[in-house]
């Protein structure tokens, strides 16, 4: 079944999108996919800052990028707070992978967040999320993105005077090598 994959940067700006997996989307569905995906962003932001159940009344869903992340992680170390789905981390080694986060008329949406506020999302045409394969896929794409950041010609965002205020963020990824590598990773992990 086909999959629609996208990377969304801070400020909910898309950096990269691609259709993966076997088969093709219907033309109507193809147009709908970005909307499905973006409607899941709120869910992810809720999940992203979700604390342990006893502290859940203090959940913040502003999701304001790296500064908020730093504050939250400090709280996590200080008290019984959680950081980035840490209640899941008891059983899983990585807590960036959020698994199935949303669904929409038989489609499933899975997600993965990075510590810099980047969101990796995928609409699964089959409606089924294979956690093991999905996690490997996201991890490898994340690694690939880190390598892209090492390219001096890729603008990772922020300006020289340090006003990283959400208007400036990572640039859309236009590299063809990135595209073909993502597709190669998809061929290995998604079917």
């Amino acid at each position: 079944m086909p999959e629609y994959f996208a990377i969304v940067g801070p400020g909910d700006r898309p950096l990269y999108e691609s259709e993966l997996g076997r088969g093709a989307w219907t033309p109507e569905q193809r147009e709908l996919n970005p909307f499905v995906l973006h409607s899941s962003l709120d869910v992810i932001e809720d999940l992203q800052w979700q604390l342990l159940p006893e502290n859940s009344d203090t959940v913040s869903n502003t999701g304001g990028g790296e500064f908020g992340g730093a504050a939250q992680s400090g709280a996590a170390q200080g008290g019984g707070g959680g950081f980035l789905r840490s209640h899941r981390a008891k059983t899983e080694t990585d807590n960036c992978y959020l698994g199935r986060v949303d669904h929409f008329y038989g489609l499933a949406v899975s997600a993965y967040t990075t510590y810099s506020g980047l969101k990796l999302l995928m609409v699964h045409g089959s409606g089924i999320v294979d956690d093991a394969n999905c996690r490997s896929f996201y991890q490898e794409v994340h690694e690939l993105y880190v390598k892209t950041l090492m390219n001096p010609f890729y603008s990772a965002g922020g300006s020289a005077n340090g006003s990283g205020s959400g208007t400036i963020g990572p640039a859309p990824i236009t590299s063809r090598a990135f595209d073909s590598r993502v597709k190669a990773i998809a061929r290995r992990h998604l079917r």
Partner: peptide, 10 residues
């Protein structure tokens, strides 16, 4: 030049 990709015009 590790990880480098030249911009299109370069």
């Amino acid at each position: 030049a590790e990880h480098v990709e030249l911009p299109p015009g370069a």
